[in-house]
Design a protein around this nucleic acid. Structure first.
Lengths: 297, 297
DNA sequence: TCCTCATGCTGCAATTTTGCAGTCTATCGA
DNA sequence: TCGATAGACTGCAAAATTGCAGCATGAGGA
């Protein structure tokens, strides 16, 4: 019988695609990772990876093993959770991946409250460019804009939010206020950098009016907001950003209104851990409050 | 994260109840087994076993872990099976536990045929006193007389067989032939040793007539058969033994006829391996042939 | 085209793991 | 009550695993 622990290493490499990366995640040396992978392959008599350029891809055998290895992992994690009583305890670490705007404007202001309710949960708020993938275990949970199609995930709809065009009063005073969507072509637009967009749901301008292109661009919604707020131009912002900034005005609110959904994505293995449920509940409350606030405000 | 391989050791100890025994099964030193068990317990922060006399019993935490560890094992075994192509290949080892009589008189004569059909399967026929337990992985499959109640097992009814009282013509010539069941009390009876009986289904004599006791006893049905065959007394034998011996005669066939079932029990993890299915199919055929033979014969 | 950076492999030393003896303890049977 | 047997724990040497340093290779950018 082969060493079951080698499956843990195998999973790491299969997910991160390089030995070095896997080694970091596993807190081992890349050499060790390589050697244990070789050992596993030998004892199974199968070639698990093919090296294409810098990265390793699973072979057919590798894919077959991967599914089973995930099952092993799942069982092992449940084992720890149950035996250590972790599944019942509101303690431990949760890594949550969110979009930058949501993290900055919705979650960050409420973190104090969360920590007071759950002092023993360490909540890491990750706003990497691109959502980290719970199915790759880069994060435990993620709030995403689209429902992921595959993976061992538990997905639930948190709610939706609206977006409008915003501009500062200073900008409108100097450049005038657009009356019709077509007027937008004559204005300075603020938006994302299309090549670096990490979710198709963020491609707002194309939806507002075909062919519309931003000239002031950033990968960061916060940078965009600051530009708009300081009178640089007109841009699409979520209401939970635009409405909070008293210096901003909605532009063409009757013509341009976008809606997006928030999806909460959790790895199946973790979905019934108390601490994960606590975070999920908090997220549902935050999004609920967000929607109530917009309605009444 | 703890070493997943330690779960393998844990399972071994949980099943065999002693370090030394587990060590033999795992092909490790008992010292190593003990130390890795300690390490696992420490990294989970739980006491897994309590020592009661010579044996180790699972604590509550241990029980919780056990179920998960079995899930890990199951996934790991599937992994090997699939990657090595073992699941499709008619090769490898199968350990089959059967009752001695069935093994000797039904299976052994057909082993040549099995081997010719499946030359790459090594079939171990185990006739230990008592059935080995597939759920403890002492055997891969077992033909049992009763349907086991629990365990991760796949159970199917193979068929039934009949038993009658038999005696040799020599015995009857010297001691006379019983005419009524009550006559049996005056005869020399051959049977099992009640204290050493390993399945309640083997307690035939009580079923024939209350209070009937054997004086010539053995734990082995083959020894009993030899005694009966050589004129030592009257005893219950399966028809597949008694009818094959031309020197034996059925006694009181209209009054005494017992029926027993054959159950094929396979560990769930192995049930869909080709080699295991091949053995199962062969067993079904053997039992079918046995029943046809009795009917027509 | 060259340079830089990161990956991944080989040799070596340090650490860890493992197995073997020997010892102690507990259970079973005479 | 006393051996006999088997299980489990401690010291020590052997073997394996691991990490580090150095080097080759290949991809991406200036």
């Amino acid at each position: 019988m082969f060493d079951w622990d080698d499956l843990r290493i195998f999973l790491g490499v299969a997910r991160s695609r390089t030995l070095a990366d896997a080694a970091r995640q596993l807190e081992l040396d890349a050499t060790t990772v390589g050697r244990r992978l070789t050992r596993l392959g030998e004892s199974l008599g199968a070639n698990l990876f093919e090296q294409v350029g810098g990265t390793r891809r699973l072979t057919e055998s590798g894919h077959a093993l991967f599914r089973h290895a995930e099952a092993v992992e799942s069982a092992a994690l449940s084992a720890v959770a149950q035996v250590t009583g972790e599944s019942q305890s509101l303690a431990g670490q949760v890594r949550l991946s969110v979009a930058e705007g949501f993290g900055t404007w919705v979650l960050a202001p409420a973190m104090r409250e969360f920590h007071q309710s759950n002092p023993r949960i360490r909540l890491d708020l990750i706003t990497a460019s691109g959502f980290l993938n719970p199915s790759k275990r880069e994060a435990d949970m993620a709030v995403m804009l689209a429902r992921p199609q595959r993976g061992r995930l538990v997905v639930q709809l948190l709610g939706d939010y609206r977006l409008h065009l915003y501009a500062s009063e200073a900008y409108l005073a100097s450049q005038g206020t657009p009356r019709r969507p077509a007027d937008l072509r004559r204005h300075v637009l603020v938006g994302y950098i299309p090549e670096l967009i990490y979710a198709p749901e963020l491609d707002y301008l194309g939806e507002v009016l075909t062919g519309l292109e931003a000239v002031l661009r950033s990968t960061s919604i916060n940078v965009q907001h600051q530009m708009i707020s300081h009178g640089a131009g007109i841009g699409v912002l979520p209401d939970f950003i635009g409405d909070r900034d008293p210096g901003l005005v909605r532009i063409l609110p009757d013509h341009v209104e976008l809606t997006r959904d928030f999806w909460l994505v959790t790895h199946s293995d973790l979905a019934n851990l108390s601490r994960v449920r606590a975070v999920a509940q908090w997220l549902r409350h935050r999004v609920q409050a967000l929607q109530d606030q917009i309605k009444t405000g």
